[in-house]
C-alpha cells in the first residue's frame, strides 16, 4: 500500500499538481511516526504508513508554516478525513485546493486507541485516491457507550470526577494546538479584554477553559482523539467532547464530518428544534 502512496505522491509532485505531500515518516523513537512534508518527488520514499500513524494531519492544512508551501496532498485516515470535511464545511479550505490521499485503516495504536473499535469510517468517506482494501463500514456500534456509562453517575460523582481530572490541567493548551478545528487566529483563552478565562492553572480556571474548549467543538469535533493523545497529564478530554457530540446527534440528528454540504448545526436551526428544558 505504501508503494502506491509513494508512487501517487511522486506523480502529483512531478506533475506540479501539488506542491507538498503531507504524510508520515518514521519517527526517531520506536513505534512512532512523524508528520513529514514532501516537496520533491525524490523524497517520496520517506513516506510510511503503519499503525503508529496517529497524528491527524488535517491540522496542517491551515497552518501557515505548511500552507505557505503551496497546494497540498494529504495522507488521511477515515477519521482525519472527517476533520477535513469539517474544515471544508467551515470554509477554512476549499475542496479543490487539497488532494486527499485516503487510506483505509483498521485502527492505530497498539493496543488500538479507544476511538478505533467504534470507528465507522475505516474506509474514508471523502477522497481523491483511495489506498488499501475497502472495508465496509461497521453497523451496530454504540459510539457513546462510555458516555452513557458515565451519565449513570450521580451529579456529585460526576463533579468529583471532573474536579480531580481538571485539577491536573497545566494550561499548556496542547489540546487546542493539536486540534484541527482550533484554527481561530486569537483563541478566547488568549483574550484579555475582558479576560474570560483565567490563565492560571488552578481548578477554577481549568474548569472554565476545559468547558469552553469542549463547547467550542460542539457539533464540530470529529473525535480524532488528538487532544486526549497529546494531553501531558492524561485528562480524558474526549469524553466531554463526545457528550456534546451525543447531544448534537440526539437533538439535531447531526454528526460532523460526513457531509461537506451539510450546514453546521450551530449555524442553523429549525422552528421545531427541541426545547424540553426551557420553561
Amino acid at each position: 500500500m505504501i508503494e502506491q502512496i509513494r508512487e501517487k505522491a511522486k506523480e502529483l509532485l512531478a506533475s506540479g499538481e501539488v506542491k507538498v505531500v503531507i504524510g508520515y515518516e518514521n519517527g526517531g523513537l520506536p513505534e512512532t511516526t512523524r508528520p513529514v512534508f514532501i516537496t520533491s518527488p525524490d523524497e517520496v520514499d520517506r513516506l510510511v504508513w503503519n499503525k503508529y500513524c496517529y497524528a491527524n494531519l488535517a491540522t496542517f492544512l491551515w497552518r501557515k508554516e505548511v500552507s505557505s508551501l503551496g497546494k497540498p496532498a494529504i495522507v488521511a485516515k477515515g477519521c482525519d478525513v472527517k476533520a477535513i470535511v469539517v474544515l471544508i464545511q467551515e470554509s477554512q479550505i476549499k475542496r479543490e485546493d487539497v488532494v486527499i490521499l485516503g487510506v483505509t485503516c483498521t485502527g492505530v495504536g497498539d493496543p488500538p486507541l479507544s476511538k478505533c473499535p467504534i470507528c465507522d469510517v475505516n474506509t474514508p468517506r471523502e477522497y481523491d485516491c483511495l489506498f488499501g482494501e475497502e472495508i465496509p463500514p461497521k453497523t451496530d456500534i454504540n459510539k457513546f457507550a462510555d458516555v452513557d456509562e458515565f451519565e449513570k453517575k450521580s451529579p456529585e460523582e460526576r463533579w468529583e470526577f471532573w474536579e480531580e481530572q481538571l485539577s491536573k490541567c497545566v494550561k499548556c493548551y496542547a489540546c487546542r494546538q493539536v486540534c484541527p478545528m482550533c484554527y481561530c487566529e486569537i483563541c478566547i483563552a488568549d483574550k484579555n479584554q475582558p479576560q474570560w478565562i483565567e490563565t492560571s492553572s488552578h481548578t477554577r480556571g481549568n474548569y472554565h477553559w476545559n468547558l469552553v474548549r469542549a463547547w467550542h467543538l460542539a457539533g464540530r469535533c470529529v473525535d480524532c482523539l488528538e487532544c486526549e493523545r497529546v494531553c501531558p497529564v492524561d485528562i480524558p478530554l474526549s469524553l466531554v467532547n463526545r457528550r456534546l457530540a451525543k447531544s448534537v446527534k440526539a437533538r439535531f440528528g447531526y454528526e460532523p464530518g460526513y457531509d461537506t454540504e451539510a450546514p453546521p448545526p450551530f449555524t442553523d436551526f429549525k422552528p421545531q428544534d427541541p426545547e424540553e428544558f426551557i420553561k
Binding site: 451529579p155 460526576r158 474548569y207 460542539a218 436551526f269 422552528p271 428544534d273 426545547e275 428544558f277 420553561k279
Partner: peptide, 28 residues
C-alpha cells in the same frame, strides 16, 4: 432560535460535568 440550539448544548455540557441543573433555569 440559534440560542435555543446552543442552550441545549450548555445544558448537556454542564450537566455532564456535574453541575446541578436545578441551578440553571432557561426560559422564554
Amino acid at each position: 432560535y440559534h440560542a435555543r440550539r446552543r442552550f441545549g448544548g450548555f445544558r448537556d455540557l454542564l450537566e455532564f460535568c456535574g453541575f446541578d441543573m436545578r441551578r440553571v433555569v432557561f426560559s422564554w
